[in-house]
Design a protein around this nucleic acid. Structure first.
Lengths: 147, 147
DNA sequence: CTGGCAATTTAGACAAAGTCCAGATTGCTC
DNA sequence: GAGCAATCTGGACTTTGTCTAAATTGCCAG
């Protein structure tokens, strides 16, 4: 039932099937991008995905990577995380959870869902409906205390 | 005691004093930028601040606006809100609160602090300390239901 | 098979937000 | 008012992402 399982061992056919499950036509490029993404839980930005796809020897253009990541997010196979004003992260864990963002290293990590609780959600302003709730805990590298 | 009071009637001397309170040397440009910002509670991005400063007939360069907003945020006179990957918002309300972000209109609004509660804050990952906690509730324009 | 058609992909031009730099100004201090 | 540090400036540059028009692909009917 869980769709956030990620297997490094998924072959092209498996990836293609996964895409179909999400109502995505599995073109060659999409399968290649999905293979990179589904190699374990991770938080990547478009540029990193492009780099990894190219490193894997697959020719996929920048525009296609951007289009495809947007498509995947729309279809729900991954989640966009907007935490850094210069970069959108794509999270292969599409279940409900929140994030730590290390402002020094630029790294994103998941918060154990059991360890945080948002209560008393307010109503959206007149004429709007809630789309998503995101909690971002920004952390810094622990500084060495002054002696 | 509250430093988030904003007065449209603040004169240059008042703004300058305010800046000094925050340990900011009140240069001409900084006072002009502060006057725009302190004209009521608002959420502006750098571009909008630049536009307003120019509209007020004051010559201030783009670089200075960016530098100054960063400085103001560092000093705590305003807060950066990173909710949109292409834009940093500066919030003149520097007290603890969270935001609604309307993804259709691009508008940011405050959540009444009494209407939301984050509980059970998790510990930061090994070697890091919490810098800030931000809750963003993304909302959409309520769509007209299909008939 | 083969023509036709829609969806997808592509390279590269473009756009927006923000940073960087080297030189000019400003404002203190003595 | 000379010297010096801080600040400001225009403009080039960078980064992330979007757009466009043309090429490619996949698929179906005949």
């Amino acid at each position: 039932m869980s769709h956030s399982v990620t297997l490094t061992t998924l072959d092209d056919a498996g990836v293609a099937k996964r895409l179909c499950d999400y109502d995505i036509l599995p073109t060659r490029q999409r399968v290649q991008i999905a293979r990179v993404l589904l190699a374990g839980d991770q938080h990547l930005c478009a540029d990193q995905v492009l780099g990894k796809v190219k490193a894997a020897g697959s020719g996929v253009s920048k525009a296609t990577v951007y289009n495809t990541l947007g498509l995947f997010a729309d279809k729900g196979i991954l989640r966009e995380v907007k935490v850094d004003p210069n970069r959108v992260f794509y999270d292969t864990n599409n279940s409900e959870h929140h994030h730590f963002y290390n402002i020094d290293s630029g790294e994103l990590s998941d918060i154990d869902p059991g360890r945080i609780l948002v209560d008393q959600l307010p109503e959206a302003p007149e004429g709007s409906v809630i789309d998503s709730v995101e909690v971002i805990i920004r952390v810094r590298q622990q500084s060495i205390p002054d002696v």
